[in-house]
Design a protein around this nucleic acid. Structure first.
Lengths: 144, 144
DNA sequence: TATAAATAGGATAAAATTATCCGAAATAAA
DNA sequence: TTTATTTCGGATAATTTTATCCTATTTATA
């Protein structure tokens, strides 16, 4: 459904959010260990999230990544997905047609639309806070 | 959502089904032209569909690909997807965790499950006949 | 100010996916 | 039986995605 880069990006964001509740900066090393992802590749993804203003980086000694405490609840999953995978998950045709819309649909157009709309709605209404709280409470996990 | 191989495989199957209504064999050349896909790569995918008994090949001169007329309506999309992409679309974790189930869920597990169940249901209840009829009637398209 | 620790970012490598090419085997028709 | 046509399948190439490495830059602290 998502690229690996996007999967890592979401997991990393949730881990950062969880630590940001307590104002704790985290490093790519700690992140990749806690979400079980390749460190350098994850670091690249973090850079992209910084450029998209979804997370904040603090350079230099004692630096790391963090999310402003009061924005955690307002960051929707769709923002992370779009920052990494772009909007192809919404705009692309399910059967790969270059041009596919109501006037020139692929044979699956309507059926895909139902599912994609639901996915879109889910990503637009799920925020980082609820996901991070699930991790914090031990109800859900980011690795293995 | 699907790999390109899978997109080509679905489009090709629909085109073959459409021609099979009239008992007409079609070649990879004709298929790739009509669904706008790379010929040799598409031919490989057709081989896989033959091995999975979803389409039939007739070797030698005047040969080609065809689907038994009376099975067209019974071939579900899920069979084509599984033949090409395997079952990862159903079984894999949305966030990429190796192990993710109700006892050890990723933070998105429940939300993904809703959507994936719907996708699964859609693929299990959509058959080649209805899709091919859409093409035949001009209501939908397989290229551009 | 010097040092150590941390992110930024370019260069490169490895792996997976997508795509092409060509000869072998099969088969219908002349 | 010969020929032309077509699928089969192995080898290879191109592209994209994933992953690693190394140096420059930044910055808090001693």
């Amino acid at each position: 459904m998502f690229s690996k880069a996007c999967e890592y990006g979401i997991r990393a964001s949730i881990f950062i959010a969880k630590n940001s509740f307590e104002g704790k900066l985290v490093s790519p090393k700690e992140i990749s260990e806690e979400i079980n992802s390749p460190k350098a590749f994850t670091a690249k993804i973090l850079q992209a999230l910084v450029r998209h203003d979804l997370i904040k980086s603090v350079k230099g000694a004692y630096g790391g990544f963090i999310i402003d405490k009061d924005t955690i609840a307002s960051i929707k999953l769709t923002q992370i997905v779009e920052a990494i995978d772009g909007d192809k998950i919404y705009s692309g045709c399910g059967l790969g047609l270059e041009k596919c819309d109501e006037n020139h649909p692929c044979p699956m157009h309507d059926k895909f639309k139902v599912i994609r709309d639901e996915l879109k709605h889910m990503l637009e209404t799920t925020n980082l806070e609820e996901l991070a709280l699930g991790i914090k409470s031990g109800a859900s996990f980011l690795k293995i």
